[in-house]
Simulated assay, not measured.
Amino acid sequence: MGVANRLDLTLRLVQGTARVSVAELSRRLGVSEMTVRRDLDELERQGLVKRVHGGAEATRSSEEESGFAAREGWQAATKERLGRAVAELVPPGSTVLLDAGTTTVHVAEHLIARAPLTVAVLSLQAAVRLADRPGIRLLVIGGLSRPGERSLVGPHALRTLETMAFDTFVMSIGGVHPRYGWSEFALDDAAVKQTALAQAARTVVVADATKLGVRAFNRVAALDRADVFVTDTAADDAATHPQGPETLAALRDAGVGIVLA
């Protein structure tokens, strides 16, 4: 995992709780405690976390700084490939629920070529990409827009989802771990994903390879709740992603199809 990717994941894990220890971050990221301390020192230098005895806590400004806008350009070429690969799995004429996230925005752009489609979105950014596109019947799931992310969450979003059925749920994810399963950094996002999983005939999960082996704080579901996992080819390279091959093997054992883009 590259340093910048690791810093991003470290910051999001710190944001997921009031305070997190160095040992917990080491366990969730699969790196040494020395590496975690060095990364926390860098994040503190940038004013994004506050070091405390044995760990760190998020500053009030860190959520805004590391939100959707900050991550949108991250690994853009990889996310573009993933977006195209996911869209190709969606049959024209079907009903799709599209999750929030920087990668699913790329999925939204490629879904236009799969029209006609009915697409329900959990992201204001995805809604902008799909609005007024020929052949796209767009439904914006109501709810609270989460600050910094513009994902749609909360009780209203959950109640709306419970009244619907989808052919395919395209789910983004913060972490996928061989034993812990699918997980997310924010409790509100995890709750939406859990409800959406129950309403879809098929679930396609998409995430870049940096998410493999990561345990975010909020468990969404076991690995076998997904049908297909789309990630980049680096996921199968133990040199750059030490937990990648193990995680992919666990997914295959759980009956999840793997697409490397």
Rank of each mutant, 00 (worst) to 15 (best):
Arg179Glu: 14
Thr163Pro: 05
Arg114Pro: 02
Phe217Glu: 13
Leu124Val: 03
Glu109Met: 05
Val52His: 14
Ala238Tyr: 14
Pro91Asn: 09
Ser61Pro: 00
Phe229Cys: 07
Ala222Trp: 04
Leu138Tyr: 12
Ala238Arg: 15
Val49Thr: 02
Ala127Ser: 13
Ala191Gln: 14
Arg150Pro: 00
Val140Gly: 11
Leu152Pro: 00
Ala250Pro: 01
Leu187Phe: 12
Leu43Tyr: 06
Phe217Lys: 14
Arg159Pro: 00
Ala226Tyr: 08
Ala127Asp: 14
Thr210Tyr: 03
Gly143Asn: 07
Ala131Phe: 05
Thr17Trp: 15
Glu162Gln: 13
Thr233Asn: 08
Asp232Trp: 08
Ala198Thr: 08
Val86Cys: 10
Arg179Ser: 12
Ala216Pro: 01
Leu144Asn: 10
Val206Leu: 08
Ala87Val: 06
Arg225Thr: 11
Thr59Arg: 15
Pro155Trp: 01
Ala207Phe: 00
Arg38Glu: 04
Asp8Ser: 10
Ser66Arg: 15
Leu48Asp: 05
Ile141Glu: 11
His156Phe: 09
Val214Gln: 03
Arg146Pro: 00
Gln75Met: 07
Ala120Cys: 10
Leu117Glu: 09
Leu138Cys: 12
Thr233Gln: 13
Val22Pro: 12
Arg252Ser: 08
Gly135Glu: 07
Ala216Gly: 06
Ser145Met: 06
Ala100Lys: 01
Thr10Glu: 14
Gly30Glu: 11
Ala120Trp: 07
Leu161Phe: 05
Ser145Asn: 05
Leu111Arg: 11
Arg129Met: 01
Gly2Phe: 05
Ser32Leu: 07
Arg38Phe: 06
His53Ala: 09
Glu33Ala: 07
Asp227Thr: 08
Gly142Arg: 06
Leu139Gly: 15
Gln125Tyr: 05
Leu82Met: 06
Phe166Ser: 13
Glu24His: 08
Glu63Asp: 05
Gly143Ala: 09
Gly54Tyr: 04
Ala198Arg: 13
Arg38Trp: 09
Ala201Asp: 09
Ala76Val: 00
Gly181Trp: 00
Asp188Tyr: 03
Pro242Gly: 10
Ala254Cys: 03
Ala209Val: 02
Ser94Glu: 11
Ala131Arg: 15
Val119Trp: 15
Arg28Trp: 09
Thr231Ile: 03
Leu29Thr: 02
Glu63Ser: 03
Ala131Thr: 08
Leu48Lys: 09
Arg215Gln: 10
Asp132Pro: 08
Ile141Ala: 14
Lys79Ser: 01
Arg51Tyr: 03
Leu82Ser: 03
Ala190Ser: 07
Leu138Asn: 14
Pro178Ile: 10
Ser62Gln: 12
Gly255Trp: 02
Phe185Gln: 11
Glu57Gly: 00
Arg81Ser: 04
Glu184Asn: 04
Pro91Asp: 10
Pro92Ala: 14
Tyr180Cys: 07
Pro147Asn: 12
Leu40Trp: 09
Pro116Thr: 09
Val90Phe: 11
Pro116Gln: 12
Gln125Gly: 08
Arg146Ser: 06
Ala207Trp: 00
Val214Pro: 00
Asp188Val: 00
